[in-house]
Design a protein around this nucleic acid. Structure first.
Lengths: 257, 257
DNA sequence: ACAAAAGTGTTTTTCTTACACCCATGT
DNA sequence: ACATGGGTGTAAGAAAAACACTTTTGT
């Protein structure tokens, strides 16, 4: 990370030696997930210009001169979702996509983020995007650029992190029921979980959730009112809450257990 | 990741609208680990110029115009270690560091990688670095730039991935004994493991290791010759091999179990 | 009364842990 | 003979999985 910067470049101060060094455009791309009506939804924007005009893409934008990628991501998130208190949302760096031709126009390196939030309001297509919309994960065709890979990577990562972190509470409002929390797991993983066991597991992990103490709330009109919880201070989950059958698509063979 | 590129910039083709967009320098930084003589070692280079002249730093360098960050990382890895068959080493993107002032000279965004390899040869200080050396993890003072954070993040990540992936075999030569594999875990985690249990766990995971069939080998001069194994095709580890006590420093409180 | 959702209890099975013991080799 | 590292066995404990059952609400 040192040495070799060309002379005569706007970026390069004195004292660098004159080797190859290309300036890149740096952007952020966001895979924003929410759980709405028992479905995993993703925030997409419709592109206005070429290339990929009319195609859906992940929201994102350029990193500004004095911004970190994290700050840029949070700013873009606020702009695209129309939310003011983006501070509560979980934002996590995924990885950086830097294939030379990932953008046909120029050399763009993109730092991808995954963001999670509770049932978020309708997107209002802020900024440049022609339209912004929540779409159920898997219900749409190919996205622009390499956004299909980014989105798939984000989904994998979220699914994996649910196992060994307390991330799931980021999908829930400040106060939530254990049923809602369980639905987050079931929705992201696409599998049903045993309620009694899930409950025990969550409650047995200190700092995962803490009882709100307050009154119970009705969940879906019918049934017994559920107790309310809020997120605890823990971030890691030990021992982990493993999904049945392990991560999708990385198994060598059998092993049903 | 779309729209808003300024006019009059060398990078920008026609058809972009004239908003803010700064060119950034993009580099890769490598945290290269190996296990040598029962210690976790890191490859460091000594800086020749200011800033941080004379200080140790992680190897790295600029991403070339037609290179992805992954390719750049592998190229730098080959240059700095002096290895020719870098293709076998595990290389994994960690995350991107983009704080505006992480490099005092200019705006540099760095994509960090973690690399693992079996007992690697002496580094030969290739490229620009004044010197390159293997140093035991934790045996050196503050590194240049934000490389302390990068290295710490890399170590955390490696430790965590040993739990639920077959990554550990990347620290071993093509053929290795279970004792060597166990030492990888013990060295990275800094804890002792029960040999019989470790053995059972590894062998019970299909695709983790497969017997070489060939003859046994002496490990350290003394003791019974150990059977040889090679890495299997599996990448994930289900159920995981949890380290005793959970990840360092992320526990909310007790929970000895 | 019944459906729906929350919550409790119990049994079975599986995995982990701890530790005792034998094996093969070099000194 | 004994130290050293490899390999096997086994029994106690903890955790996960499966499932039966009670509670509280709305219709």
């Amino acid at each position: 990370m040192n040495a070799r910067v060309p002379e005569g470049n706007a970026l390069a101060p004195e004292g660098y030696d004159p080797h190859a060094f290309t300036p890149f455009a740096v952007t952020v791309d966001l895979a924003v997930f929410t759980v709405r009506s028992s479905a995993l939804q993703v925030l997409l924007v419709e592109r206005g210009q070429e290339p990929y005009a009319g195609r859906w893409a992940l929201p994102g934008g350029f990193v500004l001169p004095r911004e970190s990628a994290e700050r840029a991501a949070r700013r873009e998130l606020a702009e695209e979702t129309g939310l003011s208190d983006v501070s509560g949302l979980h934002l996590e760096q995924l990885r950086t996509y830097s294939e030379p031709d990932r953008d046909p126009r120029m050399r763009v390196v993109s730092v991808a983020f995954a963001a999670l939030g509770p049932d978020l309001p309708e997107a209002r297509g802020g900024g440049d995007a022609a339209r912004a919309e929540w779409r159920p994960y898997g219900s749409f065709g190919a996205l622009a650029f390499d956004h299909d890979s980014i989105l798939a990577d984000a989904h994998d990562r979220i699914g994996a992190k649910l196992e060994y972190s307390c991330l799931a509470t980021s999908f829930c409002p400040p106060e939530f029921t254990l049923g809602e929390l369980q639905q987050v797991y079931e929705t992201v993983w696409g599998t049903a979980l045993d309620r009694p066991n899930f409950r025990r597991k969550v409650l047995a992990t200190p700092g995962f959730v803490e009882p709100t103490g307050g009154a119970a709330r009705l969940t879906g009109g019918r049934g017994k009112p559920a107790a309310l919880y809020r997120a605890g201070k823990a971030t890691a989950l030990h021992p982990p809450l493993l999904r049945p059958g392990g991560p999708r698509g990385s198994q060598p063979e059998g092993r049903t257990s």
